[in-house]
Simulated assay, not measured.
Amino acid sequence: MVNSVIDYYNKNAHDFYNNTVNADMSEHYKRFEKHLILGSRILDAGCGSGRDSLYFHTKGYKVDAFDASDAMVNLSSQLTGLSVHHARFEDVMFEDKFNGIWACASLLHIGREAIRGVLQRLVDMLCKDGVFYMSFKYGNMVYKKDGRSFNCYDENAFSRMIETLPELRILELYKTKDCRAGKDGEYWLSAILVKI
């Protein structure tokens, strides 16, 4: 993840936190959790506000979380009571294997030239039959805003990218409206995948 993206989240951490911490993710949790058992180990990859880590932790899952932004690590640690790790996708490595990896709106800043390597790193930390949730802004394009690069996928582009990772199989691929206030007309592509 490039420094300009990390700088953005460090400088705008409180605004980002306030805009995302109360977003209703219940539909996505339900789709993800049906593939897990109570007590499963979950990695929240690029945890942002810590909203999802807190949910999974209170539901009885064993949660590890990381984020590339120091400021977001501090805020998410305060929210969850967990020891959130400071790491970038390109550098993170846990020795434990996870039953689930949750990457909500976090991989979208990884460029198309680097996404396969980052996903492979995460897949290597996933147990066989483990489940992987990820989401991207909807569309087959790359654009820049506020110093951040956004890597967006539609169903076809996403499926082609996943074909380069033979250990992953798509279970669900679905489009939803952005659930944050003031984001009318914006859509996301979410995916539930399994490691085979």
Results as ranks from 00 to 15, higher is better:
V5M: 02
V5A: 05
I6T: 04
D7V: 01
D7C: 06
D7M: 00
K11T: 04
A13W: 05
D15R: 12
D15H: 11
D15Q: 13
Y17L: 01
N18S: 15
N19Q: 11
N19T: 07
D24W: 08
H28C: 15
Y29Q: 03
Y29T: 05
K30P: 01
K30E: 14
K30D: 12
L38F: 14
G39K: 04
S40W: 07
S40M: 10
A45M: 11
C47D: 10
G48F: 01
S49E: 02
R51A: 08
D52V: 01
D52Y: 05
L54C: 08
Y55C: 13
Y55L: 11
F56V: 01
Y61W: 08
V63C: 07
A65M: 14
A65F: 11
D67K: 04
D67L: 03
D67Q: 09
S69F: 05
D70S: 14
D70N: 14
D70E: 15
M72A: 05
M72N: 08
V73G: 11
Q78K: 06
T80A: 07
L82P: 13
S83R: 15
S83C: 12
A87E: 15
R88A: 09
R88P: 04
F89E: 00
E90K: 04
E95M: 10
D96G: 08
D96Q: 13
K97P: 06
F98Y: 08
F98V: 06
N99G: 12
A105Q: 02
H109R: 05
I110G: 01
R112K: 09
V118S: 03
L119D: 08
Q120C: 09
L122G: 05
V123I: 05
D124P: 09
M125L: 06
Y133L: 13
F136A: 00
Y138C: 02
M141N: 14
V142L: 01
V142G: 01
V142C: 05
V142Y: 00
K145Y: 14
K145E: 15
S149D: 09
F150I: 11
F150P: 12
N151A: 03
D154T: 09
R160G: 03
R160N: 09
I162S: 02
P166L: 03
E167I: 02
L168Q: 02
I170N: 07
E172C: 03
D178S: 06
D178Q: 03
R180E: 13
A181N: 13
G182H: 13
I196C: 15
I196G: 15
